[in-house]
Nucleic acid binder design. Structure first.
Lengths: 328, 328
DNA sequence: ATGAAAGCGCTAACAT
DNA sequence: ATGTTAGCGCTTTCAT
């Protein structure tokens, strides 16, 4: 049987109440008894039952974290940022992981609600605004990387990022640019929209292809285009993962990068630095976003009724080896 | 205020007990009232309080999962496997994440214990056997990828994996082989040991360098060797991450792979497939390990007193583009 | 400084 | 089929 607070109390010859106080070093416990209690607790390997504790305190002082996909390092970056500030604040995290399809969003969020977290920081939500609405009553939501109406939001300016990427390509002379977009869903249309807008503003025809978030699918989707007669001279991929898929497809057809084809990714994860051919990419500063989201979440714990907070980060273009002027 | 079971009961005009039963569709609730209760629960967006529920049931039916590092995709693979079988069994997961330094192992495990998980599946534990000992009394431990005495273990045969890698290099003619090892810690010496043994068995001098688990450090550590006069002709890296670091260092010195230098990684993560230069690597089948670990964890929930279970998977060599006979 | 007692939201006998 | 009641392990008034 697990060792309970009662066990510690008995062993130390005091009441449970006193043990409870001593363990959270509250005032009003004499030094000597506190020391004795802590000694006993340590000796018995006592660990407080978080269920009972949270139930009794009517608050868990805990932050829920939802991450869309563990295979995409962007979420590891975001998590690092969140953990950093949560740890400093002494707030525990409760995690839950989704999937690129989005089918695990709901179960994941539900689990966090059931765990009674004070606030949930969700990175990469795929649920529609409508499906997300009920959660506004169940918990406080801080959405990262995706704008959710009515919630707290920590996002990156995707319009700007896409514009940065496309402008770079335009500047070095590209005209036929293909955008490999992610499936269209609420809150994730900024890159695609800015791509189209920027192309049109330059008097060019935007060409868009859609793949899911996986490297393999990106390569697959791009295939037919590469096998056709008139190729684009540059591809702007939705993220680094899919950019890798683009590079795969290109490599398997012996199309040299950047000589015959320029490629730009998005996220600046370490996947964007395959040795030799480092990806030009847009850095959305995941760790920073995570950090800020956690700060907002902590602030939200203190003032549940403050108006929604919103913060938009500016992405930056990281020019590396996969972009060059088009072949003459 | 959050909606409680009491609210649902009142609204449906029944007792709490009945709601509790209906929600877990136990026998003994008439169809009509069950439907009514479920309707109300749904309408009120009721989510059961997992703290109260777990406390009352004296069991959470929950699996704790510890992952060393979110930046290493191996752990995403392992997680996928675990989630797969846990979901099928209707068992919830509680996650906790460590860090490559190992300093977060203890806090991470403690959090799982406090959360009252039935069993913890830990992948990539860095704590020493000795530091791990106390946890044997606090929870059931299924260790993945690392052998922990007395616990359930799901491991890969690292000796075999390393032998596979080195033998391959030997076979194609290499004699001067360098092993870039991970810091020596309990449970992770198999690859290094087998490297030395295999080299000696071939009458060769094992050469070993140590780096931490990061790509950057691997590149840094390898630097001096590459700048010296007599280079090895092949490098066997501790994992794919560090193999990437090796490739980085090589590339920055214009040493062609595999012509001038062969490289082997370990794990077969997607990082091992940078476009163009796919890494020869050892696949330890992370998802499989995760799956099996979860199965064992579930079995352990049913029979807490069964003798320790142990399963050793056979890694396989994946020969790709970074290995070739040494230059003449 | 310390202890007694009530109660957090639920589940599990047990009673009806 | 449904309701009553006694906890689960802790925290928190409130006494002493």
């Amino acid at each position: 049987m697990r060792v309970t607070m009662e066990d510690v109390a008995r062993e130390a010859g005091v009441s449970r109440a006193l043990v409870s106080l001593a363990l959270r070093d509250a005032y009003g416990v004499s030094d000597s008894t506190r020391d004795r209690i802590l000694d006993v607790a340590e000796r018995l390997n006592y660990q407080r039952n978080a269920l009972a504790s949270g139930l009794a305190r009517r608050t868990t002082n805990t932050l829920g974290v939802f991450l869309l996909d563990l295979h995409n390092e962007l979420f590891a970056d975001i998590y690092d940022g969140i953990r950093d500030v949560a740890t400093a604040a002494g707030t525990e995290l409760v995690l839950s992981v989704g999937s690129t399809g989005g089918t695990l969003d709901k179960p994941g969020l539900d689990a966090l609600v059931r765990a009674q977290v004070e606030v949930v920081v969700a990175a990469g939500l795929l649920l529609s605004d409508k499906e997300l609405a009920p959660y506004r009553e169940l918990t406080h939501l801080v959405s990262v990387a995706r704008r959710v109406p009515g919630a707290d939001n920590v996002v990156s300016n995707n319009e700007l990022g896409a514009k940065l990427a496309v402008s770079h390509l335009l500047e070095i002379g590209h005209r036929r640019i293909l955008h490999l977009a992610a499936p269209s869903s609420d809150g994730y249309r900024g890159r695609r929209r800015a791509f189209s807008r920027t192309m049109k503003a330059a008097g060019l025809q935007p060409q868009i292809l859609v793949s899911d978030y996986s490297r393999a699918d990106a390569a697959r989707v791009l295939g037919p285009v590469l096998d056709s007669t008139d190729l684009p001279t540059a591809v702007f991929a939705h993220n680094d993962q899919t950019a890798l898929g683009v590079l795969d497809a290109l490599h398997s057809r012996d199309i040299p990068v950047p000589e015959q084809m320029s490629v730009i990714g998005y996220d600046n994860t370490s996947a964007s630095r395959p040795p030799g051919i480092a990806l030009t990419t847009v850095d959305l500063h995941g760790e920073e976003l995570g950090r800020r989201a956690a700060e907002i979440a902590l602030a939200r714990m203190d003032s549940p009724d403050a108006p929604p907070m919103e913060e938009t980060f500016k992405p930056t273009l990281v020019i590396r080896g996969t972009t060059a002027p088009p072949a003459a």
